[in-house]
């Protein structure tokens, strides 16, 4: 069965292109425009992985990650955060909140798929 990935980003362009690349590889995707929507959509759906932006209105990515980790169903799923900061501070912050890995923007579709496959097997 196709693995389901939740893609959270306030930029529709990034969301669409990430979704496009993932779907090309046979993944199923769900989209959300910000952390609050992401958190809402993940509940009750069998999501296998989350790919999320950090800076978003309503609820930022880091907060969303820590809230997702509070949900019993999603304590162990891999979560990737997309960050523009190449400094380690944001990544460490993300890791502390429960993110599994990160991708620094700008990234190529190959990089995205490499990390997704690395964490999803």
């Amino acid at each position: 069965m196709a693995k389901k990935i939740l893609v959270v980003d306030d930029s529709a362009a990034i969301r669409q292109s990430v979704t496009f690349v993932l779907q090309q590889e046979g993944f199923e995707t769900i989209e959300a425009a910000d952390g609050a929507e992401g958190l809402e959509k993940i509940k009750g759906s069998a999501v296998d992985m989350v790919v999320s932006d950090v800076n978003m209105p309503n609820m930022d990515g880091i907060t969303m990650v820590s809230k997702i980790r509070e949900l019993a169903d999603f304590r162990f799923i891999p979560i990737i955060i997309l960050t523009t900061e190449s400094q380690s501070s944001k990544m460490e912050e993300g890791k502390a909140a429960g993110a599994t890995g990160w991708i620094v923007k700008p990234f190529t579709s190959e990089k995205l798929l490499a990390v997704v496959k690395k964490l999803l097997g």
């Binding site: 306030d10 930029s11 362009a13 990034i14 292109s17 932006d53 800076n55 978003m56 209105p57 997309l82 523009t84 923007k105 700008p106 990234f107």
Partner: peptide, 23 residues
């Protein structure tokens, strides 16, 4: 913070789609 966030989003997306000058 919303001004900051908008700048941040434009920067990140611009780099993704090859608008390097803007980014």
């Amino acid at each position: 913070s919303s001004v900051f966030r908008i700048m941040h989003t434009i920067k990140g997306s611009a780099a993704m789609f090859g608008f390097d000058d803007i980014s």
